[in-house]
Each structure stands twice: as C-alpha cells, then as structure tokens.
C-alpha cells in the first residue's frame, strides 16, 4: 500500500454521538425516550504528509466535530484515529480570532505559551527571540508582541493565532474555518500566508470550511460531508471537473460564480434535515433528484469497486448519476 506509507493521519469508521435527551425528570414523567445525535457517523479518510485535506459541508454536517475529535477535544464514541506523528506537534487554528486569543494577555505571551508548555525550561531570551521570529514569519513586527489582542484587526488576530500554532513547531495543523470571519481581501492575505507556510515548513493541513471556492484554492483532496457522513472524497481537480455525488453537484450549482453568474437559475429546494432524526437509508434521498427505492431503505457506502471509494451513492453505483 504505497498510498498509506506517507499517511500522517488515518481515520477509520469514526463516530461521535451526543446525548441530546430531555432531562431525566421529563423522561420519567413524560415518557420521552433517550435521543442521540450522531454528529459524526462512520467517517474514514487518510491525509498524506504535506498535503491539505478539506472537509466541506453545510452547518451541522459534523465537520467541526471531526476537528475536535482529531485534536482530542472530544473523545470518539466509536472507530479510531491514528496519528503517525508527534502529538505535541499537532496544533489548531480556530474560526473566531476574537474568541480564541486571551484578551488579558499580551501577544508575546500568547505566542510563547505553547513554547513554555511544550518545552519548559527554555531560557527566556530564547523564548523571546523565537516569538520575534514567529511574528516576523506571519508578517507582524516584533513591537506588536507588547500589544493586547484588541489592538489588532481580525486579519492580524488570525495571524497571531497562526504564529501561536507555529510556536510548537507543528507538523499538522487543524484549521477550523480559519478565514470565515474575515473580509475577502484579508482572507486572501491569510490564505496566501497559510499556503506559503505549508510550502516552507512542509505542514499538513486538515482544513475545514463551508466555502467551496476557498477549499478549491487550498486543498489537494476534498471530502464533502452531509449529515455526519462523507458522501464524496476526491482530489480537488477531479471533484470540480467530475462531481460524483448529487449533493456535491447541488453544492457546486448553488455557489455563485463571479466569472459566470447564473442569474436565472432555479435553485434546488429542501433543507438539511435534523441530525437527531436523519432520514432512513441515504440521508440525502429526500432532496435528491436521482433517488429511487433503494436509497430510501439502504445506506450507501463508499466501496472500492465504485469509483475507487470516491463516492457513497447508489445512483452513481448503478451508473445513473449525471456524470458528464
């Protein structure tokens, strides 16, 4: 298996359930049953060293839960995560640059925290030299280390988050919507910075986003999620050239394209169902134009003989999918 030799992260049949039952007394009196939400429902993927795997999907599809499972902020309810690297060298960048930096700490202390935690006993002079270096890497000045987070704009704060993540000399970064809170021109600065750092330091990214155009720019491989499952996973160019799953096709159809705006399209109806009571069979079937009986009862899997495990869809399996 040459493919797996260079894998840094392997995720197998990963599951995470949350108990969303009513309180005990209500269950007792009103005879309400226990309820579980399957946020992540049997997900598997592999990330190669130095590459970027992107998870895309709409709110509630489980992409952020996967980020928390991979970083160990949640424990899996099932399946496993194998990380072939140094756990200390796994870092995370969060979405909200306003909430993820301690407002009462100066920036230098924020950036130095991973250094001080992971390598206690590092001489102070060395720590501050490293902080200055990191500030430089992300395009800030050493003098910025003396300021507090509120003195910076959103884009600059996200640079500080990146500097902090880099302080631990990571090899693997989990980035949960790192630019969603930023304006487009600032987003471009941060995305370019992240790409440059990946090239220079050989970083691997697990990149989570709802924005397909950002993902197209950043990722080598894209996994499309729907209600806790990966419905399609393909190298970026293939996914855009030849989307296999009807949901991916829907997503690609609905994002406005600046170069070719479709001003009189009729958007597809329906909404993402509640993950507490997902539809039977393939959870996309109520919205799917290609759905047939089998989709309502059976759950499709990604199988080696179907487009080389790239898609979980009976329509694709039976060759009825609209493949241009």
């Amino acid at each position: 298996m040459t493919l797996r030799q260079n894998a840094i992260l392997e995720v197998d049949a990963l599951e995470r359930r949350f108990d969303v039952s009513a309180p005990w007394l209500n269950r007792l009196i009103e005879r309400k049953p226990r309820k579980t939400l399957r946020a992540v429902d049997g997900v598997d993927f592999v990330i190669q060293r130095g590459q970027t795997l992107a998870l895309v999907g709409e709110s509630g599809c489980g992409k952020s839960t996967i980020a928390k499972l991979v970083t160990g902020l949640h424990a899996p309810s099932g399946g496993n995560i194998r990380f072939h690297g140094d756990r200390d060298r796994l870092q995370m960048i969060f979405q909200d640059p306003f909430a993820s930096l301690n407002p009462r700490w100066r920036v230098a202390r924020i950036i130095a925290e991973p250094l001080r935690t992971l390598k206690p006993g590092t001489p102070e002079a060395q720590v501050s030299a490293r902080v200055d270096e990191l500030l430089g890497i992300v395009g800030l000045a050493p003098a910025d280390g003396l300021k507090f987070p509120h003195e910076f704009s959103g884009g600059q704060r996200q640079r500080i988050s990146i500097a902090r993540a880099l302080a631990g000399e990571p090899e693997f970064l989990v980035c949960d919507e790192p630019t969603s809170a930023l304006d487009v021109s600032v987003q471009a600065q941060v995305l370019n910075l992240m790409k440059r750092l990946q090239k220079e330091m050989g970083l691997t990214y697990l990149f989570i986003s709802h924005d397909l155009s950002v993902v197209r720019h950043m990722a080598d491989v894209i996994a499309v999620m729907y209600l806790g499952r990966i419905v399609e996973i393909q190298p970026t160019a293939d996914l855009f050239a030849n989307p296999l799953h009807p949901y991916t096709q829907l997503l690609l159809d609905t994002i406005p394209d600046l170069e070719a705006p479709r001003r009189d399209r009729s958007p597809m109806g329906g909404e993402v169902p509640s993950p507490v009571s997902p539809p039977s069979g393939c959870s996309f079937h109520p919205r799917c134009p290609l759905a047939f009986d089998r989709c309502r009862t059976e759950r499709p899997q990604r199988r080696p003989q179907i487009h080389n495990r790239r898609v979980a869809c009976f329509a694709a399996e039976e060759g009825t999918a609209d493949v241009q």
């Binding site: 487009v184 021109s185 600032v186 471009a188 994002i255 170069e259």
Partner: peptide
C-alpha cells in the same frame, strides 16, 4: 482578485496590502 475563483487556478490570490 482576492476572491478565490471557481474556474481559474492561481497559485497566489491577489492581495491588497494593509487594511
């Protein structure tokens, strides 16, 4: 130029310096 495109490939997005 700073908006990632859905049809054109660029290595680097155009940036407006500063804010």
């Amino acid at each position: 130029g700073s908006i990632p495109s859905l049809s054109n490939d660029v290595e680097e997005l155009q940036m407006i310096p500063g804010s």
